[in-house]
Amino acid sequence: MEAATLPPLEEMDETTRDEIETSVAKWKDAEGNLIMILHEIQNRHGYVPRASSLLLAREMNIPLARIYEVLTFYHYFRLVPQGDHNITVCNGTACYLKGSGRLLSELEKQLGIKDGETTEDRMFHLETVRCIGCCGMAPALVVDKKTIGKNSPMDIPPILEKIRQQEKTHEDQ
């Protein structure tokens, strides 16, 4: 498969090209190099931009479809940038039994997005994970890396409001 012609992409700047070329040169002969390179890209950007994947396909001479098969198979990889504030609902057994489903529904309702999505203004990203190891705090949420325990749906609006206020103050300054 010849991946010679790339679509005209504005995002495809000098930096992206350099990054990809460096990564490919570094991992060139290693087994399982595709995954390692994708990790590097994600570590740099927080997600794997399409422009990077398109360039990678050309540099490694592999079909873009193969790259996306890998990207979408592993839960770890993201295809869109996360929001400024990341909200994770724990869906482990304990949290599930203690009503994590209701927390998720409330968050989805309040934010107008579904699990795994980011709000249009990129302020919030919502996702679920299996178990964060804080079963004693069930049902647990992780809001911007801070774990909050024993939540009910009623706790959701104040949590979101607090973040919005912070952002507003930030903007005003």
């Binding site: 498969m1 399409r50 994947s53 479809a65 193969r66 996306y68 098969e69 979408t72 295809l79």
Partner: peptide, 21 residues
């Protein structure tokens, strides 16, 4: 066909045959 338009995206119940991305 060596076309690679279709691929298996995602996994489990969400698996779908679709173009990359």
């Amino acid at each position: 066909q060596n076309v690679w338009a279709l691929s298996f995206l995602d996994r489990g119940i969400n698996t779908r045959m679709a173009p990359a991305g």
